[in-house]
Computed example of a mutant assay.
Amino acid sequence: MFAALEVATGKIIATHSKRRRRVEFLDFMNSLTAAFPNRQLHVNLDNLNTHKKNEDWLKAHRNVKFHFAPTSASWLNQVEVWFSILQGQSLSGTSFTSLKQLREHIDAYVNAYNDKAQPFVWT
């Protein structure tokens, strides 16, 4: 699963992928740039290897800037905070009989979450 959190609204954009290679990551990034045309995008990332060595893609998408969180500081990346919310509020204690069922469950949660989404307030 790839996900992005729109900081201004608190809404989640998510997609499922069988793998998490660079090609799937860049496909997700292409969908984000299409969802926010003509906008400057600042993308906070962890240090997953697929997030690195994407200079050619970034050259073709000058409106996108990647920012990497320090190792062991995932709490600085708000989508990682959301992944924790997803785990605690939706996935913990559940079981699924198929990957399709899991995806449908996550999609339903994302839709319900987005209906009430608000930006995170740091205290």
Rank of each mutant, 00 (worst) to 15 (best):
L5F: 04
L5A: 04
E6D: 07
E6S: 10
V7L: 06
T9W: 01
G10M: 06
G10A: 02
G10F: 09
G10R: 09
K11I: 10
I12S: 03
I12K: 07
I13M: 14
I13Q: 15
I13S: 13
A14W: 13
A14T: 05
T15I: 15
T15Y: 12
H16C: 00
H16Q: 01
H16N: 00
R19G: 08
R19F: 13
R19A: 15
R20N: 09
R21H: 09
R21F: 06
R22P: 02
R22N: 03
R22L: 03
V23N: 08
F25S: 03
L26A: 04
L26M: 05
D27K: 10
D27F: 03
D27V: 07
M29R: 06
M29L: 11
N30K: 14
L32D: 01
L32W: 09
T33G: 02
T33K: 07
A34M: 08
A34T: 12
A34R: 05
A35T: 04
A35N: 00
A35W: 02
F36L: 00
F36M: 03
F36K: 03
P37N: 14
P37I: 15
R39I: 06
Q40G: 01
L41W: 09
H42S: 10
V43T: 15
V43L: 13
V43W: 12
N44I: 09
D46F: 08
D46K: 12
N47K: 08
N47I: 08
L48V: 08
L48Y: 11
N49R: 10
T50R: 10
K52R: 08
K52C: 04
K53E: 00
E55R: 14
E55H: 13
L58K: 13
K59R: 03
A60G: 11
H61L: 06
R62W: 01
R62C: 02
N63I: 04
N63Q: 03
N63H: 05
K65V: 10
K65A: 08
H67E: 10
H67N: 14
